[in-house]
Design a protein around this nucleic acid. Structure first.
Length: 283
DNA sequence: GCCAGCC
DNA sequence: GGCTGGCAACGCGTG
DNA sequence: CACGCG
């Protein structure tokens, strides 16, 4: 994939260019594709860089080349969604100034069953990262008490994501219902936080967003960059590495390639950890 | 970044 | 030819 | 009932 304007600055801090962004994705192609291949991907594009206005794009435009793989998932509307097939899928979108990649947890070829459950931990404005980090560490045993494996990563902005790999045998409706039970158990154990995105929140109240599990909702792709001037990355980590994090700015387009070369892919065994839904007694 | 619609 | 606006859409809460 | 927004 040759880029049209590789020297165009997309991230103001450090003047990271489109070409560097593409080189970043090439450096992490192996773990990125291991996770994302076959998934429906939505993008957030910033033609004027992270300082400008961005927009979410779900449909693959007509002007995209033939080789960009798409699927019609016409549930309520005839939509042509991009499927991650090769790294060029990502790079073609990079050339369109896509900075953030969001995955729907459905995978080719059936696009029927969900591959993971997501807990998106969203801190209120001004909360230090250490406080969200410690909350993630604290709720881990609650989630695991339902029998799930847990994988953690910084969101790349201010929060964190916990993914539970699932055997692909349940629909989004079923997974959401199960996530709601887990969320309620978290709130019971740690009152003062919330599951409601519209709730009025105090300075120590974290939103445990389970709505990412609703049908056709998406969540930030592991290894995706985020649209902040520092070019941070939502880097899959071990719980041990995550527990040492002090700031999401530790992991950027500039630092992650060497970090990956040294530490490898913390989520390499994601698929092997897949388990059943805890509500699936009678299957 | 690219297109369609409008001036 | 140049400028501008769109490029998502669920479920609930408010006027 | 039409929008506004997270």
């Amino acid at each position: 994939m040759e880029l049209t304007h590789p020297d165009k600055v997309l991230f103001e801090d450090g003047r990271v260019t489109k070409g560097e962004l593409a080189a970043f994705f090439e450096a992490v192609r192996e773990p990125l594709l291991r996770f994302a291949r076959g998934h429906v991907v939505f993008v957030k594009r910033y033609p004027e860089g992270t300082g400008g206005k961005g927009f979410f794009q779900k449909n693959l435009p007509e002007y995209a080349p033939e080789w960009m793989k798409a699927v019609d998932l016409g549930k309520w509307k005839k939509a042509r969604y991009t499927i991650v097939e090769e790294l060029d899928t990502i790079l073609w979108w990079v050339n369109q100034d896509a900075i953030e990649f969001h995955l729907v947890p459905l995978r080719a070829p059936d696009f029927k069953y969900v591959r993971y459950m997501v807990f998106d931990l969203d801190p209120p404005e001004g909360m230090p990262f250490a406080e969200v980090r410690d909350f993630a560490l604290a709720i881990r045993p609650v989630i695991e008490s339902f029998g799930y494996a847990t994988c953690v990563k910084p969101s790349g902005k201010r929060g964190a994501h916990i993914y539970c790999p699932l055997e692909p045998r349940w629909t989004a409706e079923e997974v959401f219902a199960a996530a709601k039970e887990v969320g309620e158990a978290i709130l019971e154990r740690f009152p003062g936080h919330t599951l409601d995105p519209r709730a009025e929140r105090g300075p120590h109240s974290i939103l445990v967003d389970i709505l990412r599990n609703h049908p056709f909702q998406s969540a930030v792709m592991p290894w995706s960059t985020r649209a902040v001037p520092e070019a941070t990355v939502s880097l899959p980590l071990t719980w041990e590495s995550f527990g040492k994090m002090e700031s999401p700015k530790e992991f950027t387009v500039r630092t992650v390639p060497s970090w990956y070369a040294r530490h490898g892919d913390a989520w390499a065994d994601f698929a092997e950890k897949a388990g059943p839904l805890h509500t699936s007694g009678k299957r």
